[in-house]
Simulated assay, not measured.
Amino acid sequence: MPDEMSENKARSLRGELYYAFSPEMAKERYRCHAAVERYNNAGDVSRRKRVELWRGISGDPTQLPPQTAGTTEDEDEAQFTHDPIIEPPFHCDYGTNILLGSGVYINFNCTILDTCRVSIGARTLFGPNVQLYSATHPLDPEVRRGTEGPEMGGQITVGEDCWIGGSVVVLPGITVGKGAVVGAGSVVTKDVAPYTIVAGNPARKLRDVPRGTKAEVTSGALAALERDQAREKSLRP
């Protein structure tokens, strides 16, 4: 039977005041930081190993698909097509409060303070240096009291098919709606409506996202990719 969650940790997940430097919470961060260090220093490893290391950070107990004898590395890598890609270095506090959808791509040097749940929807793309802060502190200094006082947080939700530009900062309690685009360098202080483009500090709506352009077809990019794939296939022994 699993251990009952402490009241202090339950408060943290609800976004209420809690004590981050209690032995329990500090231990969870130490575990995460060790897992993150292994991930960031893994070097040139296989896609399978990279997925395994990420699951060590996030606490995902899902077993990896079997590695069949005789399969090539490319064939094995194809089994992880829908797993998120997180470029190192990556930084977070707990890891277990981060939920990534299929096909998510997170570029270099992302920081996620996951005091509360941070959810990122399928096929969403992050530029480099994106920072998601679900953690915050009381404004009253007599309550805040450095490492001796309590802190709190707010859940962050980024919808499916979003594009978050480089060096964007998302503050606690924010929802970025499906299909939205956040311009590079923006600070998101309010919810972003689905299928809108926002930018600035604080981020403000610029316009709606264009839809139905089929640019991958009209530009010839998709046809070029298909030709390259066909050529590569024909050259295989």
Rank of each mutant, 00 (worst) to 15 (best):
I85F: 14
E151T: 11
V182F: 05
S22D: 09
G185R: 08
D114R: 04
S134E: 06
E24M: 07
F21Y: 15
A184Y: 11
G220F: 07
I174Y: 05
G95C: 06
T81R: 13
P194H: 06
G212A: 07
T136Q: 11
K214S: 13
R14T: 00
K233G: 00
Q229T: 00
G43T: 02
A10F: 10
S134V: 03
T189C: 11
D228A: 15
T115V: 15
K214Y: 14
P150N: 10
R227M: 01
L125F: 12
G56D: 08
V209H: 06
R31Y: 09
R48H: 04
A35R: 04
A215G: 04
E75S: 11
L222F: 14
C92F: 07
T147K: 13
G15I: 07
C116V: 05
D74V: 03
D74K: 09
F126E: 04
Y105R: 04
F21T: 00
D74R: 12
D161S: 05
E52N: 06
L225D: 07
D228Y: 14
N129I: 00
Q67C: 08
T96G: 06
T96M: 11
N201R: 15
P172G: 01
S22A: 08
Y30E: 13
Y195Q: 03
C116H: 08
L64F: 14
K178S: 01
P23D: 08
P2S: 08
E160S: 12
K233D: 03
V104F: 09
L139Y: 10
T213I: 00
A180H: 05
G56E: 11
T115F: 10
D93H: 13
V182Y: 03
P150C: 09
